[in-house]
Design a protein around this nucleic acid. Sequence first.
DNA 1: TTGAAAGCGGTACCAA
DNA 2: TTGGTACCGCTTTCAA
Lengths: 339, 339
Amino acid sequence: MKVTIYDVAKEAKVSIATVSKVLNQTGRISDKTKRKVLKVIEELDYRPNMMASALMGKQTKTIGLLIPDLANPFFSELARSIEDRGQELGYNLVMCSTDYKMEKENKYLTLLKQKNVDGFILASGFENLDKVEELIKQDIPVAIVARDFPMFPVNAVALDDFMGGYQAASYLINLGHKKIGVIARNVWSNRERLRGFKQALKENKLEFSTDFEFIEGSSVEEGKSMAHKYLSGSNVPSAIFACNDLLAAGAIQAAKENGLNVPEQLSVIGFDNTIIARIVEPPLTTIAQPIQNMGEQVMDLIVSLIEGDQKEKIRLTLLPTIVERGSTFKYDNCGVNER
Amino acid sequence: MKVTIYDVAKEAKVSIATVSKVLNQTGRISDKTKRKVLKVIEELDYRPNMMASALMGKQTKTIGLLIPDLANPFFSELARSIEDRGQELGYNLVMCSTDYKMEKENKYLTLLKQKNVDGFILASGFENLDKVEELIKQDIPVAIVARDFPMFPVNAVALDDFMGGYQAASYLINLGHKKIGVIARNVWSNRERLRGFKQALKENKLEFSTDFEFIEGSSVEEGKSMAHKYLSGSNVPSAIFACNDLLAAGAIQAAKENGLNVPEQLSVIGFDNTIIARIVEPPLTTIAQPIQNMGEQVMDLIVSLIEGDQKEKIRLTLLPTIVERGSTFKYDNCGVNER
DNA sequence: TTGAAAGCGGTACCAA
DNA sequence: TTGGTACCGCTTTCAA
């Protein structure tokens, strides 16, 4: 049988109240009994049952992490960084992939509430404002990561996606590109990146591709087929901005299938700077999200919400940085880029 | 305040015992009261507190997943497949990256025991026999995945790593390769793959590279530097077998840095068949683990352990399959592969 | 400084 | 068919 606080109390010849006090360092206990109790705890290898103390209103030291897809490198790297910080602070994570589906989000949310998680970290893709509002009303700590809700008072660690899109466009424009295709899906972060992208275009009096349309998923395959669309269009771009590294990898594959050299004949720029960016050939120039930092910050944020009495909402917006690798190239229309 | 079983009982004018019974479908309740209670539950949006019922010996519907590194594509894909099956069966996962460190494994193990998880799934890399034994003794359900303990009676879903190594070697030998370098780290699965590899070599009267040594990590960088070692050695191999896709990606990069064409001048074969294999250039020929199936099976296994009365240990060994892509090539020493 | 006892939110046995 | 109640393992007053 598992050893309980009663076993310890009996063995140490004190009451369970006393044991509880030395455990939680509350109340005043004489050094002598304290030592005695500690010794028995050691001997019996006693571990307090967290369910029981949670029932009495203590924390479960468990946080729910809702993420679109754990198998996506960006999210798995983010999850890992959140987990690392959590482990430093003594928290475990229940991870749930939502596949961007509202039903799954809702299901996990109610389920984890029943399990008394101390709070939720919601990663990008969460479009479920109502539920977030509900959580806040119910006084359950929530923090958003890699996603912003500008019009909504909620704690968040966000990336400046607008800036990221702007940087990508500016970089390509500086290289001389004038026709740039964009691959994006219809989620908030991508829309922001697109907005930033268009802003840079506008400032340079360039036109946005008429071939553009949102894609459905964010897999390599989707990226490839959208890139094919651009490359077979009437107005072939000299560069492509893909809203994540996976899509960029697809774009590179499409270029190859079309017999185009990357970067000489087609520049490709990605977003996220996951492991994918270092592995594709040529290595991907990409807009880097500070994944480690985001994970750390959001964990710190949620913990301060859980443990502290902090009342004002905090919104942290981190800036992307461009990482230059081999998938982008200077464009000029006199020879080098000839097809 | 959260609504409890008492609120429901009061509102429905019955006892909490009755409410509990309709909730758990135990005992016999008249249709009339059942409907009444159900209605109140609905109205109040009552959700039973799982901590409380866990205290009474019910399950927490939560399983601990210990995995070396969630940011590694193989493990994140595996975790995702486990999670998917878990969600179908009504279980959540607490995921913990152990970095192959025993201290972390132990820490997570005791922590999650305190949190009353219903069982543990331990993924590859877990070298901690004692602790596993302890879990079994304590009658805590455990299942191993992607890792075998041949000499140890424990429920497991394993891959036949020996066979995988054997397949890799056979495939390359069939292509005509005689000098093959191996990149592996000193963990069980890799040792098994190596053993299978050597077996095939032996059957073909070929010699194992004298340059071989285990590497420390399993990152792209490690793969690259080990490959460099081979390529700058006195007895340069015509093919490399890397014990995972990440290492294989590194080997491909090393080849390029040495001005070698993959696959014409150097064949590379990987292991796992993660997303990495589809993204590198050339796409990677690799020994595929049936990741989806492994995840599903191990979740089914642990759940049958938790819910069933199954007493005999089960060991499921799945077979790897080779996936041919573009990173391997026929070897003959008359021209094509000239350097 | 210590301990008795009242919960926390359920489950399940036993009576009614 | 229902309800009273002991109990799960711990926290937290309140008295002693």
